[in-house]
Design a protein around this nucleic acid. Sequence first.
DNA 1: ATGCCTCAACGCTTGAGA
Length: 264
Amino acid sequence: MRIATWNVNSIRTRVDRVIAFLERSDTDVLAMQEIKCRPDQFPRAAFEEAGYEVAVHGLNQWNGVAVASRMPITDVRDRFAAQPTWGEPPVVEARALGVTVQRPGEASSTIWSLYVPNGRELDHPHYRYKLAWLRALHADARTWLAADPGARIALVGDWNVAPTDQDVWDMGFFEGKTHVSGPERAAFAAFADDGWVEVTRPLVTNYTYWDYQQLRFPRNEGMRIDFVYASPALAAAVTGAAIDRDERKGKGASDHVPVLVDAD
DNA sequence: ATGCCTCAACGCTTGAGA
């Protein structure tokens, strides 16, 4: 099966590009982030015409996650346990969507489409929210592995963390900024301590995001912040990975590109 | 070769993104 994750930065603006990507890439399950709409605003028909079922979780114009699958969807969850809230009154934002997919007679796989909070500034409450969010996900994901060590689970999406210095175009530029701080990197790396395997890094090198401003893409001044953590059973089945850099080109591109993983 | 920011909404300005 081919899994992909893509921060689409508004599905309503990008639907033609996303459908074209699905058809071009032969993707079975696509996890999307930043759909920026409610379920009733999601362009569901275009996906169904292309042969995909859709699960959508969106509350308003901010955030929003979805999964499109041409394998039957058998279970959907719109948050993880103890997912932290943001704002006053507190809201569990639309940043996590877990979808189980299964073809009859085959093993099931659970794909979590994740949009980790940005953090904004190191001294901003949003940064503390980001760390709490990552730590809560880590704690819950640990229980999933403990409950079923052979489960095929993928934690995919926009992690909003650049795990190494090589994952940003200039560490000097990011000094004192989010995405590269020690606590964020530690929170990301902690998943590996439980057996989660980030399966893209050994197979492909590229950035996954380039800011719209200041010619960041033509200058290749990007960041690698979109990743696929696979459970041990799924990681053992991985045969390939890719970053579709070309999707950043041209008019109407998202600022992120798709990250793809193949697994038997 | 990619091209100097984009998106949605309480909209003609603002908040958010990273």
